[in-house]
Design a protein around this nucleic acid. Sequence first.
DNA 1: CTCCTTCCCTAACAATTGTTTGGTAGGTTA
DNA 2: TAACCTACCAAACAATTGTTAGGGAAGGAG
Lengths: 208, 208
Amino acid sequence: MPKSSNSDQKKSTVSPPERREELLAVAARVFAEQGYNATTVRKIADAAGMLAGSLYYHFDSKESMLDEILSGFLDELWARYDAVLGAGLGPRETLEALVTESFREIDRHLDAVAIYQKESRHLAVRPAFAYLVESQRKFEKAWLGTLERGVAAKVFRADLDVRLTYRFVRDTVWVAASWYRPGGRHSPEEIARQYLSMVLEGIALDGS
Amino acid sequence: MPKSSNSDQKKSTVSPPERREELLAVAARVFAEQGYNATTVRKIADAAGMLAGSLYYHFDSKESMLDEILSGFLDELWARYDAVLGAGLGPRETLEALVTESFREIDRHLDAVAIYQKESRHLAVRPAFAYLVESQRKFEKAWLGTLERGVAAKVFRADLDVRLTYRFVRDTVWVAASWYRPGGRHSPEEIARQYLSMVLEGIALDGS
DNA sequence: CTCCTTCCCTAACAATTGTTTGGTAGGTTA
DNA sequence: TAACCTACCAAACAATTGTTAGGGAAGGAG
């Protein structure tokens, strides 16, 4: 159900999806590197090899580019999350699958994730980006629910504040976008494995 | 050695330290809420109950306010870190002390930490903020060194990528600034205890 | 060849930005 | 009272911002 996006109605200026995607990728990179507010449309145009005004043949506004980047990322993310959540897995397996899918998503949509991390907080208050709040709500429900199921099933510790654990796990995964670079030493799956090992078993040696 | 700051030379316009601190606290709050670039000097002035131009009686520029906020925070942080690192503790105790001091610093300088988290990446490339890079380097040395000492002393697991572990622990601590609110349910020390318990022992039950 | 569409450029626009200059009310000092 | 300093205001500044309007080159369709 990818109705979290509102980019459907605002295709007043249409152009071949391929060119749009190219330009959106360029914009996402600049947004991620410099921050949304510090990015001028002229910088995006420079990086794309054209002039500022020409962007407005493809897009309605600077904000609509940001909207399209974020909602596109979230739509894909939720398609995969929903598949995991509907697979009927146990708590621990669900957690592992969610973490792994998250790192894959970071690998695929690094720029979008980085933008989301930095800007979603102050964007969420604006009506045009209400779907960010909705997504955050679903996010909490999915992760927190999995953790609570795990506590009830005695596979996760019960002596920790669940909400604290939720934020711990969530942040631990997504901040990786701030240092992860695709094509690096570790694959997303390998990173997921090590992260899960740390989160689940801890970094201390057993006999300490 | 608080020479990480360069705010020492630029007190061309001096005013009572108290008023400066008041205005810096206001600016830090707006910076943290809206982001540095999205914050106009008029918004800061509004929040302080004065007009935009009046800020320039106290400060040289908008950037110098940011500089003073960040370097002030880092100076205090490193004073405490250096005390911990020089105390001759074992690896695990050092890690625990660093984490606890970090949460205390988040409690005290929440806005500055939030700003640092969001802006340090793109600020670090600018010469005026070179001390951010320097601080990041010291940071890595302190944390990574402690982890490596722990692995050598067999108190931390040796089967994990140490650099990955470093980023894991570091991020786990500092992203808390994105949701922590002073005066909330848990004290900084209590949060530190639970975080450390998760990082060290994991969230899985032993017999799983 | 002509028409039309696609995609970009040129050139400007009003608004907002950080910052400066000159002034001034109010308190302190002499 | 007179001189002075502190902390602010009023008004403007040049630069930069997102955005728009009109034009034109290229190429396919008829």
